[in-house]
C-alpha cells in the first residue's frame, strides 16, 4: 500500500507539471477534399508549429550551420527557389533538381519530384542528409539542438519535455509545413462567388478546363500522380525521375505533377527548372513535346493554342496567385525567436 501512495504522489506531481498545449485545428478550405495527412497522429499545437518554424528557418540543420530549409524554400516564392534552375546547397554545391513550391502539403500522397519519400514527416531527412544540400546527420542535429538554450525552451514548450529526438524534430517541422495552405487566390474568390472573372480570365479558365485539368485537377491543381509530360532527357543530368525509384521502364521520365497554385511566384518551371517563363511552358505543351512510348495520353495529340489564347490562359493562371499566403506573418522568418 505504501508503494501505491508513492505512485500516487508521482502521478500527481507529473500531472501538475503538465501544461495544456494549445491545440490548433486544421481547417479544410471550402471545396477541398479530405487531406491525405492523418492529423490524429500528430495533433497540431501552436507550440509545435512554433518549434517547427524555428527549425525551418535555422541553418543549424546543416553541417556548417549555413543552409536552412528556407534557403531553397523561400516564402516569397511560395516556398520554392526562384532564379535557379537547379537549387544550390552547402558549399555552393549545385543539385540536380529545382526546389518545388511547398503548398497544401497535407493533400500530397508522396514527396519529391520522383515520389521517393512516402510521408511528409520523413521528407526533411532527404535534404538534411544530402551531401549537396545540408550534409548533416540527424543524430548530430539532436546533439547541436541539445546544446542550445533556445531549443531546450522550445522543445519544453512543445513537448513538455526537454529531451530532443529525431522523431520530435521531424514532427515539429511537419506541423509548420502543414499550415502552408493556399486557398485565398482570386480563383478561390471566384469559385465562392465573391468575385467574377474578367472576360480574359474566363476564356483562360475554359482553355484550362479543356487542355490542362486532367493532370492539374481543381481545386488542388494537381492529381499528385506521376506523368511523362514530354520533356526530352537533359543528358547533362540524365534524370529519369520516377524510374529511379520503381526501377520500372514504364516510369521513365515520369515526374510528380506539380500544383499550379502560386505558379506566378515560383519560376523557373519543371523538375530541372528548364523554363523561365509561363510562355515557355505553354510553348512546350503546344510545340515542344518529345514523343516517347509512355508519354501522358493527354499529350499524345498536340495542344493547339493561338498566341492570344496563350495570353488568356496565363491570365487565368495568374488568378491562382495567393498574396495572403505569400505575406502570411505566420509563415515568415521568426525574427522574435532568433533576435534573443
Amino acid at each position: 500500500m505504501k508503494k501505491s501512495f508513492i505512485l500516487l504522489f508521482i502521478y500527481v506531481y507529473l500531472f501538475s507539471s503538465f501544461r495544456i498545449l494549445n491545440e490548433k485545428s486544421f481547417i479544410v478550405p471550402t471545396g477541398f477534399p479530405e487531406p491525405a495527412y492523418d492529423f490524429s497522429k500528430n495533433i497540431l499545437t501552436t507550440e509545435k508549429i512554433e518549434l517547427g518554424r524555428a527549425l525551418f528557418y535555422d541553418p543549424i540543420l546543416s553541417r556548417d550551420n549555413s543552409i536552412s530549409c528556407s534557403s531553397c524554400h523561400s516564402v516569397y516564392n511560395s516556398f520554392a527557389h526562384t532564379d535557379h534552375d537547379l537549387s544550390h546547397g552547402i558549399d555552393d554545391l549545385i543539385g540536380t533538381r529545382n526546389a518545388p513550391a511547398l503548398i497544401n502539403l497535407a493533400w500530397h500522397k508522396s514527396f519529391m519530384w520522383d515520389g521517393a519519400v512516402n510521408h511528409l514527416e520523413v521528407q526533411a531527412l532527404a535534404p538534411i542528409t544530402h551531401p549537396k544540400e545540408m550534409d548533416e546527420s540527424m543524430n548530430h542535429i539532436v546533439f547541436k539542438l541539445s546544446q542550445s538554450d533556445l531549443y531546450t525552451k522550445l522543445f519544453m514548450n512543445a513537448y513538455n519535455d526537454t529531451s530532443i529526438t529525431g522523431e520530435k524534430i521531424l514532427k515539429a517541422l511537419t506541423q509548420f509545413q502543414l499550415i502552408f495552405v493556399s486557398s485565398s487566390s482570386r480563383y478561390d474568390s471566384m469559385t465562392q462567388k465573391q468575385i467574377k472573372f474578367t472576360y480574359q480570365e474566363e476564356n483562360g479558365y475554359n482553355l484550362f478546363k479543356k487542355n490542362c485539368n486532367t493532370c492539374h485537377a481543381e481545386p488542388l491543381f494537381s492529381t499528385y500522380t506521376f506523368a511523362n509530360n514530354g520533356l526530352g532527357l537533359d543528358t547533362t543530368l540524365n534524370d529519369f525521375g520516377r524510374m529511379q525509384i520503381t526501377k520500372e521502364r514504364s516510369d521513365s521520365l515520369k515526374f510528380k505533377i506539380p500544383t499550379l497554385r502560386n505558379i506566378e511566384y515560383s519560376p523557373p518551371y519543371m523538375h530541372d527548372g528548364r523554363f523561365k517563363s509561363l510562355f515557355a511552358v505553354l510553348n512546350h505543351y503546344t510545340s515542344g513535346i518529345h514523343q516517347t512510348t509512355n508519354l501522358a495520353p493527354e499529350l499524345k495529340s498536340p495542344i493547339i493554342l493561338s498566341e492570344n489564347e496563350k495570353v488568356d490562359l496565363i491570365a487565368f493562371l495568374l488568378t491562382l496567385s495567393d498574396k495572403k499566403f505569400i505575406f502570411n506573418p505566420d509563415f515568415s522568418y521568426p525574427r522574435e525567436l532568433f533576435a534573443k
Binding site: 514527416e121 542528409t129 522523431e167
Partner: peptide, 24 residues
Amino acid sequence: TNVSGAMGNDLDPSKNMYWTWQSG
C-alpha cells in the same frame, strides 16, 4: 510501419537505420 511517418525510440531516424534519399 515503413509508410507511417516519423517514429520514436528504436525506430527514430537518428539511429541511422533509415534511408533518407528514399523512404524506408
